[in-house]
Structures are given as C-alpha cells and as structure tokens.
C-alpha cells in the first residue's frame, strides 16, 4: 500500500446529515460495543461526502467515544476509504492475477495514455479518478472494472470506451 497518513482538513466542522444520523443510531443497536461502529461510521461519511476528511475522523471518534487515533488507524488501514476527494467517476481497475492474465494492462494503459489518468490521481477537470485495486472477486469474467461501485466485466478497451461515452 502507499502511505495514507496525510489527512485533508476542510477547516469546516463535520457532522452527519439527518439521514446518516438516523442510520448511525439504527446501527448502534446492532453491536454490543460502540467501537464496532467505526467502520460503519466511516462508510456513512463516505456515502455522505464521497470521501473522509480529517474533521470527519475526529467527529466519528468523539461521537463513538473512542480515540481519534483508533479511527485514524482504521481509516488508513482500509484502503476503500477515500482520504481525499475522488473524481466524479471513480474507476477501479483490478490489477490482480486473473485480470492481469486477461489483459487488465491494456485498460490501464488506455486510461493512462488516452485520458492521462494516473492511479491515485484525479483528472484536472475533476471528472475521473483512477485506482488500481486488488482482486474484485470477479475473476471468471476478467478483466473487471468498477465504476462508482458498479461492476463491468469482461472488459476491453472498446467496451471501456463505450462505457465512458455513455456517461453524461
């Protein structure tokens, strides 16, 4: 993995909106300890904001009643939490074994060369961000791409082009 220690501060206080607040309270009934809410709370934050800022980590820690260091640990350990904003379309390309065997590199090369995307970076216009991720559990239909959470299987460059063209 890469170093994820750097958090971004928005300078603004964070709190859950009504919907996430209710969801959080609901979830708190499902676990015997408050700390079990750390991962769900990070998910709620990401759902709400698209990413997890420094203030949100502090908020979660205080709301749960645990150390900020523990939420910080979780936020940096689990790579699906975005610690900075992503592009409007976040493209995850599986880089692992079966997808690699079946040509994931062409897809990554296309995104790099034609769309100038670098893994881990957001495009200048904020439209795309690219991430190379580990096996997505769809190896039988490799290579796979996940776009904003939706799976696209048996991908190749042509299909990818069509997919990107279909986005408004």
């Amino acid at each position: 993995m890469s170093d994820r220690s750097e958090l971004i501060s928005t300078g603004k206080p964070f709190s859950f909106d009504k919907k996430r607040d209710a969801a959080f309270e609901q979830l708190s009934k499902r676990y015997p300890t408050r700390e079990s809410l750390i991962l769900p709370a990070l998910w709620l934050t990401q759902e709400q904001e698209g990413w997890v800022c420094q203030e949100a980590i502090a908020y979660i820690a205080d709301r749960i009643g645990t150390f900020a260091s523990k939420v910080y640990e979780a936020a940096t350990f689990y790579t699906m939490y975005h610690l900075r904003p992503t592009g409007r379309y976040h493209i995850c390309v599986c880089r692992t074994l079966s997808c690699w065997l079946r040509g994931k590199q062409e897809i990554v090369d296309y995104l790099r060369n034609e769309l100038s995307l670098t893994p881990g970076m957001v495009s200048e216009d904020g439209r795309y961000s690219l991430e190379e991720v580990e096996c997505l559990g769809h190896c039988g239909s490799a290579p796979v791409v996940q776009l904003n959470g939706e799976f696209h299987e048996d991908m190749d460059v042509e299909k990818l082009k069509a997919l990107l063209a279909s986005l408004q």
Binding site: L39, P40, F77, Y78, V133, E134
Partner: peptide, 10 residues
Amino acid sequence: VTVHRGAGAY
C-alpha cells in the same frame, strides 16, 4: 443477522 461491511483488506 447484521451485515458488516469491510473496506478493502484481504
């Protein structure tokens, strides 16, 4: 039954 979501860790 409660579903607990992981977040990217094999």
